[in-house]
Design a protein around this nucleic acid. Structure first.
Lengths: 127, 127
DNA sequence: CTGGGCGTTCCACTGCAGGGGAAGGTCAAC
DNA sequence: GTTGACCTTCCCCTGCAGTGGAACGCCCAG
């Protein structure tokens, strides 16, 4: 399978696949005489796995760790569990930060400033 | 006031203040004969305003819009209100996306995979 | 007169995940 | 044999808000 076919089969672009090759995520199984990347059909599952990981908010580095474990012959399930748990904790924190920020802005916004009381000399009554 | 003093007074760095100068956010009121940036005391409030805006999650571009309005002699309150409302809407969306992602990961994580059932041949039962 | 602590400019780099486009090679069909 | 679609590598660019470092100038105390 050539790179364009793999891109079409997985709904991504040839640019992205070359990037993944360079990043050590999905290597072609061979190269044609002309130098074209040649992928086997397993590559489709591998790319789909990467895309699912991205959808789950994992970084390419985290996905690569999982793939490297598997490529070394190990079952990466424990590692995946830990990665997902980390991701969950990171999400909790981000959500908490954004929620706090929302509170800050809401209370700023509640200051009922009349445009008439707003003078250019002061920078801003809202902030 | 020289750049180091302003940095100390506002709790930021000279690097950042030079960056703000280049970005058109806070210009020194003059330059010394030697080329040193010379800030007046109002610069302290201006820098503090920028830092409050950053704390509220505004981008430097948004903050610059507000300062430009004020520098043009206009009271920027209406604009600030709109900016804060935009920011609030953007936060709502980000929080919703992250919450959805958290649900996705939580349900992935709930798949009670035994390490024994996890084979290297499959990529991952979790993803 | 020299050392240390300021200041200056300019350029490159960070993290993340690719995207844009140039210059050239390859392949199948017509 | 030539057109057009596909492939290759290479390098730069994106957004955001700075940070790091080099090479140099200024100024004051000892």
């Amino acid at each position: 399978m050539r790179i364009g076919e793999l891109a079409a089969a997985t709904g991504t672009t040839t640019k992205t696949l070359r990037f993944y090759d360079g990043a050590g995520l999905v290597h072609p199984s061979a190269r044609s005489v002309a130098g074209y990347r040649d992928y086997d059909t397993q590559a489709i599952d591998r790319v789909r796995f990467i895309l699912r990981g991205r959808t789950a908010g994992l970084t390419l580095a985290q996905i690569r760790e999982i793939l490297d474990l598997r490529d070394a012959g190990a079952a990466p399930c424990d590692h995946v569990q830990r990665t997902l748990d980390q991701q969950l904790a990171s999400l909790e924190q981000q959500i908490a930060e954004l929620t706090a920020l929302r509170e800050t802005i809401t209370s700023l916004r509640r200051r009922n400033v009349q445009a008439s009381t707003c003078h250019p000399e002061t920078i801003c009554l809202y902030l």
